[in-house]
Amino acid sequence: MRIALQAIAGLIFGLGLLISGMADPAKVLNFLDLFGSFDPSLILVMGGAVMLTFVGYRLAFRRGQPWLASRFDLPVLKAIDLRLVAGAALFGLGWGLAGFCPGPALVSITLAGTSGLIFVASMLLAMTVTQSWLVRRQQVAGADAS
């Protein structure tokens, strides 16, 4: 049941990306090209997604508990620190260079040919290396503290 719900959520997310046009890097780059061939479509993608999520989250939280889990698992980090800003900036650079962010890159993996594969392989490699490094650093910090 839990697995089926996640499969359906992934499918709906993918359909949303495809229908909205956000899976197409050309459309994303035109949205980001304020002083050129600006295409404002993505404002509606983000706006529609945020508005529906805002309302839906409130209804979900009001119930007190998720349908299939014991509690809501919300992010605990609150600090706006260098790691957050540097990470977001690095992400923005990559997003602006290729027009792909993680969701659209995955949904169009079967549509974007070799280019899509190259991007996704590079992205997954960097994710693996970065999170392995973060975990190791945490373990070292933990060992120091004990």
Partner: peptide
């Protein structure tokens, strides 16, 4: 199309939160 797609993305996010409490 972009608004419709955005609403679907929102629906997926709400499903994960309402169903499993996940982002």
């Amino acid at each position: 199309a972009s608004l419709a797609g955005g609403l679907l993305i929102g629906l997926s996010a709400v499903l994960l939160m309402a169903g499993l409490g996940r982002i």
